[in-house]
Design a protein around this nucleic acid. Sequence first.
DNA 1: TTGGAACTCTTTAGCCTGTAAAGTGAGGGT
DNA 2: ACCCTCACTTTACAGGCTAAAGAGTTCCAA
Lengths: 260, 260
Amino acid sequence: MVVYAAQGDPRRSMALLWRTESPDAERPGPKPGLSVDLIVETAIAIADAEGMPGLSMRAVGDRLGRTAMALYTYVPSKSELVDLMHDKALAELPAIYDGDGWRADAARWAEDLWDFYLRHPWVLQVSQARPVLGPNEYVVLEALVKILRRTGLRPTALRRLVSALYSCVREPARTASEARLAEKVTGQSDDEWWYARSGHLKEVSPDFAERFPTLTWMEGEHAFRMEDETVSYLEQEAREAFEFSLAVLLDGIEVATKAE
Amino acid sequence: MVVYAAQGDPRRSMALLWRTESPDAERPGPKPGLSVDLIVETAIAIADAEGMPGLSMRAVGDRLGRTAMALYTYVPSKSELVDLMHDKALAELPAIYDGDGWRADAARWAEDLWDFYLRHPWVLQVSQARPVLGPNEYVVLEALVKILRRTGLRPTALRRLVSALYSCVREPARTASEARLAEKVTGQSDDEWWYARSGHLKEVSPDFAERFPTLTWMEGEHAFRMEDETVSYLEQEAREAFEFSLAVLLDGIEVATKAE
DNA sequence: TTGGAACTCTTTAGCCTGTAAAGTGAGGGT
DNA sequence: ACCCTCACTTTACAGGCTAAAGAGTTCCAA
């Protein structure tokens, strides 16, 4: 369920995101019982707990003691609600990193983003093509670029580095967070699932080791090592993949900038 | 719309994926007018053209001159259909790379995967946690591991490298393919969209340059450069990010293995 | 030859989405 | 007092997946 950015009136979307609505004068009619902020917070709570599939207008309305349609008084569509959720959640991330040097700060930025994605897995489903363009997205980006500018890289190289950093956090974070959600939704732990599945695999392909010898070699010697019992094997692997990619990337930059 | 792996009877799913059904003897009842393969191919064609949102049981049925329910004779659920699509599509990728050396082969593998994801963007929506475990997934993985084994890395390091390679293809490929799909669905080109949006951004945040000075500096000097008119700016950026990450990663490995 | 079992495919229906349209009722401004 | 405006509900519709039941075809066995 990838969620694309809202397609309604772009001017209204942007106004909502950047909070440039006119101050509300005394107007006739009943006072609003809800607010955009309250709705967005509630929606975030639901999405955090149940993932995107659990986020429906009815679910949000129910939790607020209203009907689904009541939300449309505050928010033009579900799509815009998701944009608002996205931007509000991003506000959790720091705006400034001014630690020991660009490398430590970049690593810290990536770590923070990793934690953020695991707290709010649904954020990864908001499409990056045609991004939401809310203020907090820019805050996070500004923070990173400010860190990386200290490397002395030119804008073009810098833009690529920014993308690369996002990639090396997002993809493994996706795997890790999907793994967590799957555990919650199916009630079966990753390790149980994997164990059952590998049984079925043996059944269905008894010649696996001959067909995929190199794979068998690679997977062979570590099967079912469990270092941390509170975190599934899959999540551990994802985390290590993230740390590895990050280290390689930062090493590469360090070398490139020192060479100049 | 992330699609999780099917949750029906795992034994049946695996049998379907690995094609270990018993050979069909002469049985009573009318001859099947369709086949699993035909259904899967049709579904792939639809998903390629319209993306996951366009893939519905009705749509597949219609294109085959049947009702949606007719498909359930062949396939236990939509979720299993997606698993089958995933595995069938992966069959397009080469099983063997034995070129000039591991580095060139790894780069070629990554390029092939990139092209594959752009041909079949919906594949990126199939969850990697609890993977499908079809035969062709293993073929692709075996091909990569075989290439990378030539680096002499140990299994543990190798597993991380494999994940890192997948990340550096998948994330930018996601952006690029979502961009293409958005163009098709909205009828508005990326560049038009971006132009309109940046107008609204100026409107809603006239002090943008002061609030985000580093970002403004980075984006400043390249705005609206258009090298290739057939490919949107966003897609170009994604492609470059991919190439950059790949190069850094492979350089890093090269250094690490030569040091030993 | 004649059931009957097995099979494909359709129909119907249920529960889930998001949201358009219309109605209800409360509150403030004139 | 009136009315406009606004919050919120009700109803309804199109479309999603799929369970359950029925129609109709075909082969096997008696």
